[in-house]
Nucleic acid binder design. Structure first.
Length: 591
RNA sequence: GUACCUGUAGCUCAAUUGGACAGAGCACCAGACUACGGAUCUGGGGGUUGCAGGUUCAACUCCUGCCAGGUACGCCA
């Protein structure tokens, strides 16, 4: 079962063989694949290769399609293959074959999903909040998207090293230490550390604006910290520890776990070595007292991340690796980090999940990493910033919405609905359901849209409980569980676990076909690093199911048909549970 | 100024990465049988895909130029 190719791969291989046999002159790089059809009238899958190839071979597209189809011969899955329009090959699956396919998926825990990641390792760098700052609604994207990518890759067999690369080192600590010494309220710090640290930081920051000597003192504290001063080190450790405790509380709530939590500070002692290596290789040199990596001129300027155009001229856009005061930049930390990861884990890829503002940084950093000999595939998955309807938010404007408040609000809204729709449920269960539904709604709101689109936060969108939302999918699961229970009650001793699946109704067949595509959705979502591909799939599956449920009887259907439909129901539930699980969304038995 | 991103139905978003008549949800209108959960289902209206060109059998998708918004562009991360 693990080696079962996906539906589209199986058909694609068959079509490719047909094309190659009919057209021996075909270039080796020609891509021949099939894709689901856009419309039901065109069958189930279509192959569009004939049109493109005909052009290259200077032949008539329909003739190419005809020849390929003839050479391909028959395929047990395909009941009908016909040529349409300028040269589309439309394939309609055989009902019985599709039924067998669904039966196989239904009895497989992975629903027929292959494990292309077996033997491969990826390092996934996500969430990465800054110490001493509260997690706000902007952090949910990196955390939730990163976590979904983690789960997706693990499911596909990859060994995933999820690393929370905390912002625990940098210039803000000088201001924090100064602020802590002068303004700290220890009771408040113990009770709500991050809130107090944030207050201290803002106050210290304002002070530094008004009083240059304050800023100098803060810088001195930072230098002391970096030099290993015991007292400052103790304070810093306390900041990190207290912050981490709050972060952990949120991660626990979100169901997010990491394999490593290595903040920037973890790489400290490696930084001088990185700069020395860059200098030794002639990649970096002194510039205005700072150490910078400049372009080596091997790339055309427009493709060179270390060049930029200004007033019609190409000018250097260097990557700073050491400031003129001797401190290191985050590019240096990222370089040290990737070198360390490459050495320790020998990954096939390192994936970074951050917001859109860091695109240039990552282009430069990847470029320099390559110059340092890093051959690992480096991927920057960026997502659009979250905004409020009135514009961007920032700590200084005081319009941040804390992540915990969002989660609280989500659970409250869900609870109100649960109490209304399931008054008979014990309150403890209602709360548990509300938790799963509320959190699911928040996560789904983010995961169901393209990560790269910009997001305007609104409460109603983040907490939607109907239509294209997590509760819609959870509701479908709950209804299936309910039907299966009723079956057990009404037909004691009955079993559908091994019942043959028959696809009588049109909606039933459509549901089965969609179910058979589960592996394709998972593979695509992981390959593109877009959880919304899977979310889309799951929503469509639920829609088909809801329609099936509403329009076709199960328990009142004749014996045989009844078991077939229940088996289909149960397979849909399995797909929804597995798919939502990959998105980090729970599926309570009752909602 | 330069680069990157975004612009699709009143609103929020999709569109299998160049495929056939651009699809969902929300909102709006009209309906749903003593079967299994109405957080549901069935049907309806709603579009010059920001604008203008170009490439080709085929463009929301690629190229060029504009318009609007966002982000970044040497010592913050």
């Amino acid at each position: 079962m693990n080696d079962m190719p996906t539906l589209r791969d199986e058909l694609g291989i068959w079509m490719a063989a047909g094309f190659r046999s009919a057209l021996p002159e075909l270039p080796a790089d020609a891509v021949i694949a099939v894709a689901p059809t856009a419309q039901a009238g065109f069958g189930d899958y279509q192959c569009n290769a004939a049109m493109g190839l005909a052009k290259r071979l200077r032949k008539a597209p329909r003739e190419v399609a005809q020849a390929a189809l003839a050479a391909a011969g028959t395929h047990p899955a395909v009941a009908k293959a016909e040529i349409a329009g300028p040269g589309f090959i439309n394939l309609t699956l055989d009902d019985a074959w599709l039924a067998r396919r669904v039966e196989a998926a239904a009895s497989d825990a992975r629903l027929g999903t292959p494990r292309p990641g077996d033997g491969r390792t990826i390092v996934l760098d996500y969430s990465s909040p800054n110490v001493a700052k509260p997690m706000h609604i902007g952090h949910i994207r990196s955390t939730v998207i990163g976590n979904a990518l983690d789960r997706l890759h693990r499911f596909l067999g990859y060994r995933v090293v999820a690393d929370n690369h905390l912002g625990d080192w940098g210039t803000q600590f000088g201001l924090l230490i100064m602020g802590f010494r002068h303004f700290a309220d220890t009771a408040a710090y113990e009770a709500s550390p991050i809130e107090e640290l944030e207050r201290i930081y803002v106050k210290s920051y304002e002070q530094s604006k008004a009083d240059p000597s304050w800023l100098d003192a803060a810088k001195a504290e930072l230098v002391k910290l970096q030099a290993g001063d015991a007292e400052n080190r103790r304070l810093w450790e306390s900041f990190v520890e207290h912050s981490m405790r709050e972060f952990d509380r949120i991660y626990a709530r979100l169901g997010v776990t990491f394999d490593l939590v290595r903040g920037e500070s973890w790489y400290n002692e490696r930084l001088p070595g990185v700069v020395a290596r860059l200098e030794k290789l002639g990649l970096a040199r002194d510039s205005d007292g700072a150490v910078c990596v400049f372009s080596d001129g091997t790339l055309p300027p427009k493709d060179d991340p270390l060049m930029k155009q200004e007033d019609g001229e190409w000018k250097p856009a260097p990557c700073l690796v050491r400031k003129s005061d001797g401190a290191f930049n985050y590019a240096t930390t990222d370089l040290a980090t990737v070198l360390s990861r490459a050495e320790e884990f020998a990954p096939d890829a390192v994936i970074y999940v951050t917001d859109e503002r860091q695109q240039l940084h990552f282009r430069q950093f990847f470029h320099v990493a390559r110059a340092l000999g890093v051959t690992t595939r480096l991927v920057h998955v960026w997502f659009g910033l979250m905004r409020l309807p009135e514009g961007t938010f920032s700590t200084r404007q005081g319009n941040v919405i804390k992540l915990e408040r969002l989660l609280d609000e989500a659970e409250e809204r869900a609870l109100a609905i649960v109490k209304q729709t399931s008054p008979e449920m014990p309150e403890a269960v209602q709360r548990e359901v509300a938790r799963a539904v509320g959190l699911g709604a928040v996560k789904y709101a983010d995961l169901s849209q393209n990560p790269q689109s910009l997001v305007t936060f609104t409460w109603d969108k983040a907490l939607a409980l109907e239509g294209n939302s997590a509760p819609y999918l959870q509701y479908a699961c709950a209804r299936i569980a309910s039907v299966l229970d009723k079956y057990a009650e009404q037909f004691p001793g009955g079993s559908f676990a091994a019942a043959p699946v028959a696809l009588g109704e049109a909606v039933e067949r459509a549901l089965a076909l969609h179910l058979a595509r589960f592996p394709e959705a998972v593979l695509d979502a992981a390959a593109a690093c877009k959880p919304n591909v899977l979310a889309d799939y799951l929503f469509s599956l639920s829609q088909l199911y809801s329609s099936f449920y509403q329009n076709v009887p199960f328990l009142k259907a004749p014996e045989g048909v009844r078991e077939s439909r229940l088996r289909l129901c149960s397979a849909v539930a399995a797909a929804l549970r597995a798919g939502l699980g990959l998105l980090g969304i729970e599926t309570p038995a009752r909602i």
